[in-house]
Design a protein around this nucleic acid. Sequence first.
RNA 1: GCCCUGGUAGCUCAAUUGGAUAGAGCAACGGCCUUCUAAGCCGUAGGUUAUGGGUUCGAUCCCCGUCCAGGGUACCA
Length: 597
Amino acid sequence: MDIDVLLQKTLQEGVEQLFGFTPGEAMLQLQQTRKEFEGDLTLVVFPMVKSARKSPAEVASALGTYLGAHAPEVAGFNVVNGFLNITLHDSIWLDLLRQAVEDENYGMKSTEDNAEVVMIEYSSPNTNKPLHLGHIRNNLLGFSLAEIMKGNGRKVVKTNIVNDRGIHICKSMVAWQQWGNGETPDNTGIKGDHLVGDFYVMFDKHYKEEVAALVEGGMTQEEAENQAPSLLAARELLRKWEAHDEETVALWKMMNGWVYRGFDATYRELGVDFDKIYYESETYLMGRNEVLRGLREGIFYRRDDGSVWADLTAEGLDHKVLLRSDGTSVYMTQDIGTAKMRFDDYPIGKMIYVVGNEQNYHFQVLSLLLDKLGYRWGRELYHFSYGMVELPSGKMKSREGTVVDADDLIADMVNVARKMGQELGKMEDMEAEEADKTYKMIALGALKYFILKVDPKKNMTFNPEESIDFNGNTGPFIQYTHARIMSVLRKARETGISFSPTFPQAMPLEAKEKEILKTISEYPAVVEEAAASYSPALLANYCYEIAREFNQFYHDHSILNEPDARKRNFRLVLSECVVKIMRSGMGMLGIEMPDRM
RNA sequence: GCCCUGGUAGCUCAAUUGGAUAGAGCAACGGCCUUCUAAGCCGUAGGUUAUGGGUUCGAUCCCCGUCCAGGGUACCA
């Protein structure tokens, strides 16, 4: 905020004049005054007490007096325990509101032609099972991060790397071949990704039975696990796939096709999308080539068994395998290929990987390997490492059936939203179609906010027994505040009340009004900080804050029934500004705002 | 074993990056709809910030020890 800089300058002069030394930046940090104290901005004077050789109270009041005399914006000050609380003239806040209203994209930065291109990889599913709650967190974070980067003037390319090849999909294929009875999404009515997931589970069940039977027959556990017929069949399919066996590839394509249609439906429900999708089946060979090039150039080395390794001991890490002894590639190999392909395809300034924190080590290694291979961008890649979603009982485990399915969860949320909406009976005169749209908006608002309000770095807990709240610090609370304001603005229009951001010089502000104005003034800094610290949570918490403040104001003061026309005008402008900010902020979280609810 | 994370109200989460009396919501209890949407507002209660030390004007935040939880350390992804 400009006013910060202005006051800082005056404060610096003050310190020089009063105490005879030049204070460093760190000494003059202004912060928002806490609500329980009077004032708008606060200077902590402790850091300069020593140099000034005065008591904290003396330093504070001397500086306060100096400000009063030299900064016309300052209306007054008070000193509490070495904290200098500065009060600004109300006109400063009104000016600020006018600026916020007049700026169509208040808080956002426009995208220049030469803006940095940021590529964000997120979602990145395996094609052998449907998306679950963990993927939801990933998708929401990735999408929101992309919106936040756009809001900060970057060019963004959203990308997805689909892990469409490997032993996992072959397992589903084996199960379908042997026990599938020709089932398809069409003839069963089961969503494709779920159907393929069912076959994956079916494979596992048979596999375990086979292993048990083999152990019964005298084999050791390890032998049995390696020789179970199902597993041998899956490996055989993988081998055939890599050898481009026609029938295998056709089956692989068919089943992956089912999965993609399923994923697309889930993505559509979640409201996330991608500008460019990569498939590992199309990138892993390039990764292999890069590794072989590294081998030729002496960056990597080959062991006697034929496997290829990178020695990272000089970097404080270990040795890392890059090609198996049978020549097939591992996850890391594929990621190298994908990275190269992307940098060939786009003028990427910054590459962000939205991937869980369990892969911290993987990305540390990937970064080093790309660097060794001669790509300057290797070191600069950013692993957006987010925490896991846990159940009250601990981690979600697919084999224990505790995984929270994405589609089920969304459907449940919509049902809860509909039930609650019908109980409240507020949308009875709404068209059925529009009501449905609104219920969905609310359901997704609740889900998305629930997940995004948490610091991405931290693990979070989700309790499937209790449905996500719609009251309090929630998405629907903010949506509701928006709908309320829209209702007021609608009524104003209907009754022919117009309003504009011109305010009288001296108009006393109510405390709640001023709180909202202060919060409005913080918005640009929050948008910036959300990008700088990669945190949608900052925006989420900000939106809650401004909604809560507005509700308090709304409760205490009437807008349309305010007799003083100038005040009524101001309140309408204020309300509209809050709407604009909520749409903008929540929009960057991927949450839509209903006009009525 | 070694390397990362994390531990804040009964529960889910904050805390302006070292600042004032650690804040919200849920759950509990009590109030507020003849007035712009009560999915709201107000109040009560709830804390030795896991624990023991250290650094300083000041520590939830930085350093060291201990306990607990999670993750990583695969020719898995």
